[in-house]
Design a protein around this nucleic acid. Structure first.
Lengths: 145, 145
DNA sequence: TATTGTTATACTCTATAACTATA
DNA sequence: TATAGTTATAGAGTATAACAATA
């Protein structure tokens, strides 16, 4: 069997661990879990409001997990929900002003961590790595041959 | 702020998700969680018995989490524990014959998934990606500048 | 005193199913 | 009937602290 440290999932996990190590304490300072941050971050990336289903796909969270996270973030005033006018089943989620402010507070450290990686690893090399990861994720490995 | 899909941790998570998607149902068939499998997999990679502390580092599990997982795996007869003769505080963990058999049962599907990725992504390209991930993980990003 | 490993505790996420409201 | 989202439930991992046994 392939050696443990040549396993692709382990290599991805290890790299992610290395990239996140410095960032986690910062999230903890703001009482945010990784998953909560992923949701806030995904909301920052969109122009307008997003439906929970879309948000779940983008953040790799299951609907029940996302549902709890949204309740939590709404309770803290970091997001706002509304109901879609064309289909009352659908919710629309967006950052509140407080949520946007929180992201703006955390973002600089995130960028600093990124810059640090760029400096040590090389900006072009990192860009290429991101492209490779993107391609890998798009192979549709779940589809039948 | 950097676009969400240009975030390195998200790119790593997304790639890992893609690589694991087909593998999870197989683990579920054998009543194994991802973390339990990581432990079994790490034990396969070593020649002899391993101390829990080392195992925790290699699998990115916290000691309390690992402790529970080891109890579970021991209860299922998949691993064996002994006490180090030179230091009675230390445990030594190794796969049991049943554990080895289970790994041998699951391994072919793991290899098949890997081969599939190699075919679609390119073997050399994948090898290079693994090396880049390895280098990235070894940047010691947690250290002060 | 320090270290190895486990236990305690509280919380969060995962995963599947069942349910409500709307379409 | 089907879909969007929430709630129910059980289980597992995360994280920190406290603890027992050994060094």
């Amino acid at each position: 069997m392939r050696p443990f440290d040549q396993s692709l999932p382990m290599a991805l996990l290890r790299a992610r661990e290395a990239a996140m190590r410095r960032f986690r304490p910062l999230l903890a300072e703001h009482d945010l879990t990784e998953q909560q941050w992923r949701v806030l971050r995904a909301l920052t990336a969109t122009d307008g409001p997003v439906e929970p289903t879309v948000l779940a796909e983008r953040t790799f969270l299951l609907p029940p997990s996302l549902s709890r996270i949204l309740s939590n973030l709404e309770g803290r005033g970091l997001i706002e929900r509304s109901v879609a006018t064309h289909d009352q089943r659908r919710s629309l989620i967006e950052l509140s002003p407080d949520g946007r402010m929180l992201v703006r507070t955390v973002a600089p450290s995130s960028e600093a961590a990124y810059t640090r990686i760029e400096q040590r690893f090389g900006a072009a090399r990192l860009q290429h790595l991101l492209e490779e990861l993107h391609d890998l994720a798009e192979l549709n490995l779940g589809e039948p041959t």
